[in-house]
Design a protein around this nucleic acid. Sequence first.
DNA 1: AAGGGTATTATGTGCAGACATAATAACACA
DNA 2: TGTGTTATTATGTCTGCACATAATACCCTT
Lengths: 228, 228
Amino acid sequence: MINSWEDIRAEVLRRIRAREWPPGDLIPNEEDLALEFGCARATVNRALRELALAGVLERRRKAGTRVAMLPVRKATLDIPLIRQEVEARGQSHGFQLLLQRETVPPVPVASRLGLAAGARLIYLETLHLADGQPFVFETRWLNPAVLPQPLPDFGQISANEWLLAHVSYTTGDIAFSAEEAGPREAEALGVAEGRALFITERTTWTAEAAITLVRLAHSPGYRVQTMV
Amino acid sequence: MINSWEDIRAEVLRRIRAREWPPGDLIPNEEDLALEFGCARATVNRALRELALAGVLERRRKAGTRVAMLPVRKATLDIPLIRQEVEARGQSHGFQLLLQRETVPPVPVASRLGLAAGARLIYLETLHLADGQPFVFETRWLNPAVLPQPLPDFGQISANEWLLAHVSYTTGDIAFSAEEAGPREAEALGVAEGRALFITERTTWTAEAAITLVRLAHSPGYRVQTMV
DNA sequence: AAGGGTATTATGTGCAGACATAATAACACA
DNA sequence: TGTGTTATTATGTCTGCACATAATACCCTT
């Protein structure tokens, strides 16, 4: 019995993989497929919509639906809290606030946050631990102008979790890169200077203003993995 | 006028961000929301379903819909062909096949591909160029047992593009990490040994068998970026 | 009081029909 | 021949209804 939208999605995917519908091919329209599968057009629509979302199909009104020529692989990554990530490994999470001060940020930081030169920000350095071993070295710029007052003791609650609980849902962007460990990172993480570190950088915004820019330097061996 | 499912999604998201519906809160059921917004329940369902997919809501039958307590950030990355990536920067893409041979892979490679020890694979080393400058150093293991014959001249067409055109749609996983440049990578990319390189590793499968394992070492400065 | 079966309830999905929208194809006119 | 308008068409979405499914709440029995 082929009638649920998941069955239809599977069948369409099968035909694409089996090259019955090769890349670039125009596939039958929704009405015809609905007729063939003996279901409503809405059901076919649901199935094709999901496949288009996954990058397998390309759809345009009037033009029809065709098999994607160059299926852009879309990788979806979960970005959990560091605490969740550590605990998911069965380790215990802890952290140390190494440094906190209020200062004028360097120009690249101010510009990435879209702030006027001279605005003062809070700067934090935190070391996250997994079973007591250095796990992530976090450097964070916070914009106090858009934070609810009073600020907590960041030695007691990690900035990330406090923000989650006290600042409205936000948007932002994430970037990954690789960098050599600088002296400060090497010391904090307990590794040699120059080791390759996996770096995650996140910028977070409310509707209008930048909230925080955080840079996570993961200790060597860290991997981010996805199932496609 | 609030009636399209996108309007409803936006309004629900607004209420969550404005903390009218705080994290952990149980929100009204679909029927009530449909009544409030003056639309059909299916429309509300579509909006809430999308938000649940994005990790903002958690839904369970009978239990209802609640605002996610710890919204796991989901980052979606596009993984284009290297050629597309280079050309998107306005540079010209080229590549050199540095090495091709058939050999028994090291044990970690064989096990990651789920192959019996002793199976022979094709090993390729390719250097991708952007405007003539080293861009990515690619090492690839190919499983000839599941490839259509005859194999092409990989000096003429890049393995990735040939696979796309000749092997059925596949699944796989992707991992990112940071590693120090080894002697081979340093020479190929023209950088000092020990420099931090951004590494992408992909394993690709057909329905049953492993097709290829590829490791891309990106030259220093490479970033992967996402909008959330 | 404990346990198990049943009713209730919220979401998940399906269907048939309708209109909206975008994009192409066809046509008419200068 | 070129151009602007109109018709056609496939997808996008909404409605109202129905039944399926999962999970909780309740009640009855022992």
